[in-house]
């Protein structure tokens, strides 16, 4: 490791020294392209975050791609219902690695105000691994910007080798998850046990 003093001296001369890992993470973190996936009211705050006042483009989320094949980040904004859940998982499967999920709003985290319902899925984390969760109903656009920054920090700090390397560099961890099917009253299976386990003891 080169010490900081030497690094800054070299920088003044126009020579930049870094590690491959930092360069890789820096590139990935600063150009996260979200998928246009607004389900309900939080989608409007997501759109407002990409508009002129709370510009999200300056954080690298320049274009919202409509196609999952071209996106890295799925911002699940709004209530996920049981009718919509298989489609969410299918879209997630279609995204290429590395991919991240932000659960925006109370409904995507845990069902939200509509929790006691026959059609509401109590949180998208029952089927997908969620990286960042933003509470709020709806969360302000600044909260979404904070979440993108948190995600960027997470990406910047990931180690590329070793046991806790990210999923896209680890052949053993699955990147695609089984799509639930419509049952008679509920989805089958009601959750994905590999990803989500209810806590062992009640609060």
């Amino acid at each position: 490791m080169i010490e900081e003093g030497l690094k800054s001296e070299l920088q003044k001369q126009g020579v930049y020294v870094t590690t491959l890992e930092d360069l890789y993470n820096w590139g990935r973190a600063n150009s996260v392209w979200p998928l246009t996936f607004g389900l309900a009211c939080c989608a409007i705050e997501m759109m407002a975050a990409s508009m002129a006042r709370f510009d999200l483009a300056r954080f690298g989320a320049e274009v919202f791609r409509p196609s999952p094949r071209q996106a890295d980040l799925m911002i699940v904004a709004g209530t996920v219902t049981k009718k919509m859940a298989p489609l969410v998982v299918r879209l997630y499967n279609q995204m290429p690695e590395p991919k991240y999920v932000i659960a925006m709003g109370a409904c995507a985290i845990s069902g939200g105000p509509f929790k006691q319902g026959y059609n509401v899925l109590k949180g998208i984390d029952r089927y997908l691994p969620v990286d960042v969760a933003i509470p709020g109903c709806p969360p302000r656009p600044e909260a979404l910007i904070h979440a993108i920054m948190t995600l960027q920090e997470k990406i910047l700090n990931q180690k590329l080798t070793g046991p806790d390397r990210p999923r896209h560099l680890n052949a053993d961890v699955p990147g695609e998850f089984p799509v639930p099917a419509y049952g008679e009253h509920d989805l089958e299976p009601p959750n994905n046990p590999g990803i989500w386990q209810p806590p062992a003891s009640p609060r």
């Binding site: 845990s110 319902g117 109590k122 509920d186 209810p198 609060r203």
Partner: peptide
């Protein structure tokens, strides 16, 4: 109508 039983995790 009885809603399906997905009350595994209820914080409050």
């Amino acid at each position: 109508y009885m809603a399906p039983d997905d009350f595994e995790y209820e914080p409050t």
